[in-house]
Write a protein that binds this DNA or RNA. Structure first.
Length: 154
DNA sequence: GCCAACGTTGGC
DNA sequence: GCCAACGTTGGC
């Protein structure tokens, strides 16, 4: 069992949007970075833990606990000419972009970026590292536990 | 809007 | 394969 942090822009898909979807499950569309894709395609397993993170917004932070809810499959938006994520170079017989479904299990209070940075146990959390831009990063078990503990603090 | 950091592209 | 130019991410 592995753990992950996955960034989503709330203007695109917030944790509330995900909760409102059938089974609180959304396809993680729009990843167009090979390293992030490789995590979804090659490393993620169903039931892996996911920290749902809001990025590019007023209060960036971890807002939900989720799980990987499917095996990888082609991101349909890469073939949709009207989509912002359309990729003309990707062919249906050889899809370039794969995704997984993510199911939100519970919404938590927003553990904000400043709070994460102020937590000594999270010093090595990848998403806090300088220059990190990856939208999907692995999370160590000790970091997962520390964040769950923070989630339940008042 | 700014800008640091990083990824991708494409000419050579 | 190198690397400059360009595009994107994402916090502030």
């Amino acid at each position: 069992m592995n753990y992950w942090l996955m960034k989503s822009e709330p203007a695109e898909c917030s944790v509330d949007d995900a909760l409102a979807a059938p089974n609180a499950t959304v396809p993680w569309v729009g990843v167009r970075n090979y390293q992030a894709r490789n995590y979804m395609r090659d490393t993620m397993r169903v039931d892996d833990g996911v920290l749902f993170y809001h990025s590019s917004c007023a209060e960036p932070g971890i807002v939900g606990i989720a799980r990987v809810a499917s095996t990888p499959y082609p991101d349909p938006t890469q073939f949709d000419q009207k989509s912002h994520y359309f990729d003309a170079a990707s062919k249906p017989e050889e899809p370039r972009w794969q995704l997984v479904d993510v199911q939100v299990l519970r919404k938590i209070r927003n553990i904000t970026l400043p709070e994460l940075r102020a937590t000594p146990q999270l010093e090595e959390l990848l998403v806090l590292k300088k220059g990190n831009r990856l939208s999907i990063t692995p999370v160590e078990p000790k970091h997962w536990k520390a964040i769950l503990k923070l989630a339940d603090k008042a």
